Simulated assay, not measured.
Amino acid sequence: MEKEKLYQLKSDASKISPILNIGKNGVTETLVEELNKQIKANRLVKVKVLKSAEEGQDLKTIAEELAKATRSTIIDVRGRTVVLYR
């Protein structure tokens, strides 16, 4: 992905709120289905990873799992928030 597009997407992401929260159940089929719907509707989505979801794996692993499951691109991982784009 080209740098200007990446900067623009990061800028756009700063203006939106997280659509989904990932809790202690982690990345489930239901969550992936809902995330796919949201990505299809909005293209750029923000997902909040709660502290309870991180047990046993780090945020980067969770972000990669989400991106792979939804066939999207990780735009940014900041704090406990993951921004995905398709």
Score class of each variant (00 low, 15 high):
Ile19Trp: 07
Ala69Asn: 00
Asp12Pro: 02
Val83Phe: 04
Glu65Ala: 07
Met1Thr: 11
Arg71Glu: 14
Val47Gln: 05
Arg71Asp: 10
Leu50Met: 11
Ser14Ala: 15
Asn36Pro: 02
Lys68Gly: 09
Asn42Gln: 10
Glu33Ile: 01
Met1Arg: 13
Leu35Glu: 00
Ala69Leu: 02
Val27Cys: 04
Tyr7Lys: 15
Ser52Arg: 03
Glu64Ser: 13
Arg80Cys: 09
Lys48Gly: 09
Thr70Pro: 01
Lys60Glu: 11
Asn25Thr: 08
Ser72Tyr: 03
Lys51Trp: 13
Glu54Ile: 11
Ile16Lys: 07
Leu31Met: 08
Leu6Pro: 07
Gly79Asn: 09
Thr70Ser: 08
Glu54Trp: 11
Gly56Val: 11
Asn36Ala: 09
Ala63Val: 06
Asp58Tyr: 11
Leu6Gly: 07
Lys46Val: 02
Val77Glu: 00
Gly26Lys: 04
Leu66Trp: 00
Glu4Phe: 13
Glu34Gly: 01
Val77Cys: 06
Ile75Val: 07
Ile74Asp: 04
Val77Leu: 03
Leu20Cys: 01
Ser52Gln: 01
Ala53Met: 07
Asp58Ala: 09
Arg43Glu: 09
Lys48Arg: 14
Thr81Pro: 03
Glu2Phe: 12
Lys3Phe: 13
Arg43Asn: 10
Lys10Asn: 07
Glu65Phe: 02
Tyr7Thr: 14
Gly56Pro: 01
Arg80Leu: 11
Gln38Leu: 14
Val27His: 00
Asn21Tyr: 06
Ile74Tyr: 04
Glu55Met: 15
Ala67Asp: 05
Arg43Phe: 05
Leu44Pro: 03
Val83Glu: 05
Gln8Asp: 13
Asn36Tyr: 00
Asn21Lys: 10
Ile75Glu: 04
Asn25Trp: 08
Leu50Phe: 01
Thr61Phe: 13
Pro18Glu: 08
Arg43Gly: 01
Lys48Met: 15
Lys3Tyr: 09
Glu4Met: 13
Ser72Pro: 00
Val45Leu: 05
Ser14Phe: 11
Gly79Tyr: 09
Glu34Ala: 02
Lys68Met: 13
Lys60Trp: 12
Ser11Leu: 15
Leu59His: 06
Ala69Pro: 03
Ala69Met: 05
Lys24Ala: 04
Leu84Asp: 05
Pro18Lys: 04
Glu64Cys: 07
Lys68His: 12
Ala41Met: 11
Leu9Gln: 05
Gly79Arg: 06
Val47Asn: 00
Thr70Phe: 05
Gly79His: 08
Ile16Thr: 10
Asn21Cys: 06
Ile19Arg: 02
Leu6His: 05
Ile39Lys: 00
Thr70Lys: 06
Leu9Trp: 06
Val82Gly: 01
Lys40Cys: 11
Thr28Asn: 00
Glu55Thr: 15
Val49Ser: 00
Tyr7Glu: 15
Thr81Asp: 07
Ile39Trp: 02
Asp12His: 03
Tyr7Asp: 14
Ala69His: 05
Val32Ala: 02
Arg80Thr: 10
Leu6Asn: 05
Gly26Met: 04
Gln38Met: 15
Thr81Leu: 06
Ala63Asn: 02
Leu66Arg: 05
Thr70Gln: 08
Tyr85Met: 05
Gly56Asn: 13
Glu65Ser: 02
Pro18Tyr: 06
Arg71Ala: 15
Ile39Leu: 07
Glu54Arg: 14
Val83Trp: 01
Arg71Asn: 15
